[in-house]
Design a protein around this nucleic acid. Structure first.
Length: 554
RNA sequence: GCGCCUGUAGCUCAGCCGGAUAGAGCAGCGGACUUCUAAUCCGCAGGCCGCAGGUUCGAAUCCUGCCAGGCGCACCA
């Protein structure tokens, strides 16, 4: 299935033979790569094997390459031609029939092409977004949502039992602040001079919440404290409901919404403290309770319970992660904003203190999204109420466009999101370029009926009509998909899939403009239909993994 | 001061576990619709890969130092 793997096997067999027969000195086999050359003259695949052998062999790379080529162990006639290039690259041209049979595989596997069992059914959790239920989601959350969701889609495709989880910080002071903010707005309806909390949430949604809740609740007869408590609770519930809806509209559905308050009510926090104590890592100082994390790579010890008796977020976070561990996840990925990076080390240190292996928790930090509108930067801040809500943007330009832009950059890179560009000039968004290729192919298939044409029952025989370089190049591109998916799953870099799809779509668009799929030559038409179907399958698979639609008409 | 991330075309970004001539989109200029969808295609132009050293057959990629930008270094959330 993997062309590169096949080639790699041939090369290893060849080296074994050369060592055995004495064509080459018996030396360790170095790490070598098989790559797809940019230049078509350099074949379908190229390897630096001879160059990496040169030092040990004490021979020139080109000479070694020549020996390898002379003794290639290629019983299946996989390789049509092998040449020496540059400083000692070996360039391989794969026999045409091999490409044809790969295309047959794509047709047979369909939506399952590229699926693998890398994960062996292991439970893996991705925790992401986890925004406080005190305000609407903004674009930064959207970036995390798109990344986490796509990662889960890809992990599932790779045989993992991947779960999406949202951790709700519903226990702390910020919920209280939400209640206070709503309360002030409510009071301000009748008394505009009523003071607003200094750090309160200032967005318009607070007034809406106040209005909405006041209609159903009799706030007048409650004390201030009672009213604030009630508003905290109801405000939180409404915000949470909104978060769920907005995320569902963004095609992100969580398997579990985990409440921080549950950690308290179930006694998990107390258990965690006891556990830390049992390990001798608990100590008291200045009236506060501390955990000793410095032996595990943290740069200072941390407070678990403040001297005012309240637990810190750190305490509940440790407890939460221990719970993840107890639930049997083999690996956990957290997606956090880059502004939390100082937190990574201490959580990992705390987990190591509990004997959880290093690397079990992987934290992906997403760099901030900078928003541009009208040529100037829009500063986002929930507290000040100045932000552009994810929902607003999705309603304007659609899920596909927003997700694609957010997914097309490495999460380590800051992202500039130009609203004008994505809003007004739809067609400039590369997502349409990819989707258009899909729609175009669908259009071709709609035409087959009136041309009295159909896909062959057995594509085998007609495929030999596929002889053009562009056709082979398209199939080669398809052959890269399975290994790309594996790499994305192990590196958590889904942005590479967006680039792959742009390239694949581009190759097809160019081919389409140059050659006709449906022609008078029936066998040729059928062969090209098979090719088109393969491209369509891959684009659809790829878009699906990114959580994007694959429209049949555009 | 310490730590993490980033620096590649006018702009936004790929490429970064070392490989052959550094790519794409947008913006600019010039072309292609009587033929399967022009949301497409073709061509032109555009580059001290932040700077300086080092490692080696070979560096945008690895190492060190510097410069610039972002973000962190709480008994805040």
């Amino acid at each position: 299935m993997f062309m590169k793997k096949k080639l790699s096997t041939i090369l290893k067999d060849t080296l074994d033979l050369c060592f055995r027969e004495g064509y080459l000195k018996q030396t360790p086999i170095p790490e070598f790569v098989i790559e797809v050359p940019h230049n078509p003259d350099h074949g379908h695949f190229a390897t630096n094997l001879a160059m990496t052998l040169a030092a040990e062999q004490k021979n020139s790379p080109r000479k070694i390459a020549e020996i390898i080529i002379q003794h290639l162990m290629d019983h299946d006639h996989f390789i049509l031609k092998a040449e020496i290039g540059g400083a000692g690259f070996i360039n391989f041209f794969v026999a045409r029939e091999q490409w044809h049979s790969l295309l047959t595989q794509v047709a047979e596997l369909g939506d399952d092409y590229g699926r693998n069992s890398l994960g062996k059914g292991e439970k893996i959790m991705v925790e992401f977004v986890s925004a406080n239920p005190t305000g609407p989601l903004h674009l930064g959350h959207g970036r995390g949502a798109a990344l986490g969701d796509t990662l889960c889609r890809i992990l599932s495709f790779c045989g993992y039992d991947a779960r999406r989880e949202f951790y709700i910080n519903d226990a702390g002071l910020q919920i209280k602040l939400l209640g206070k903010s709503i309360y002030s707005r409510w009071r301000q309806f009748s008394d505009p001079s009523y003071p607003f909390p200094e750090d309160g949430y200032r967005g318009d949604y607070i007034e809406e919440l106040a209005l909405e809740i006041a209609q159903k609740q009799d706030l007048e007869n409650l004390s201030v404290d009672e009213a604030i408590d009630l508003l905290s609770e109801l405000g939180k519930d409404k915000m949470l409901k909104e978060l769920k809806e907005d995320l569902a509209d963004f095609r992100v559905n969580f398997d579990l919404w985990y409440k921080e308050t549950d950690l308290y009510s179930s006694g998990k926090i107390d258990q965690t403290i006891k556990l830390i104590k049992k390990r001798g890592l608990l100590f008291e100082e200045g009236g506060a309770l501390w955990i000793k994390t410095t032996p595990f790579g943290d740069d200072k010890d941390r407070v678990l319970r403040k001297k005012d008796g309240e637990f810190t977020y750190f305490a509940s976070d440790i407890s939460y992660h221990l719970d993840k561990w107890e639930r049997g996840f083999k690996k956990v990925i957290n997606i956090w904003g880059a502004d939390h990076h100082g937190y990574v080390n201490r959580v990992q240190a705390a987990l190591m203190a509990e004997g959880i292996p290093q690397g079990w928790l992987e934290v992906l930090l997403i760099q901030l999204v900078k928003l541009w509108e009208g040529g100037t930067e829009v500063k986002m801040s929930k507290r000040s109420g100045r932000y552009v809500a994810l929902k607003e943007l999705v309603d304007d330009v659609g899920v596909d466009a927003v997700r694609f832009v957010l997914l097309s950059k490495d999460h380590n890179s800051p992202l500039d999101f130009d609203i004008d560009l994505v809003k007004r000039k739809d067609s400039e968004n590369p997502v349409y370029y990819v989707q258009y290729a899909h729609a175009r192919i669908c259009s071709i298939f709609r035409k087959t009926a009136e041309a009295n044409m159909n896909l062959p029952e057995d594509p085998g025989p007609c495929l030999e009509k596929l002889v053009l370089d562009e056709e082979i190049a398209l199939i080669r591109k398809m052959s890269e998909f399975p290994s790309l998916i594996e790499e994305i799953a192990s590196t958590s870099e889904p942005h590479r899939l967006t680039y792959y799809l742009i390239e694949l779509a581009g190759s097809f668009h160019r081919y389409y403009n140059k050659h006709r799929v449906i022609s008078n030559d029936r066998a040729l038409s059928q062969a090209r239909l098979c090719l088109s179907l393969g491209v369509k399958t891959l684009i659809k698979n790829g878009l699906n993994l990114l959580g994007l639609s694959a429209p049949e008409i555009m």
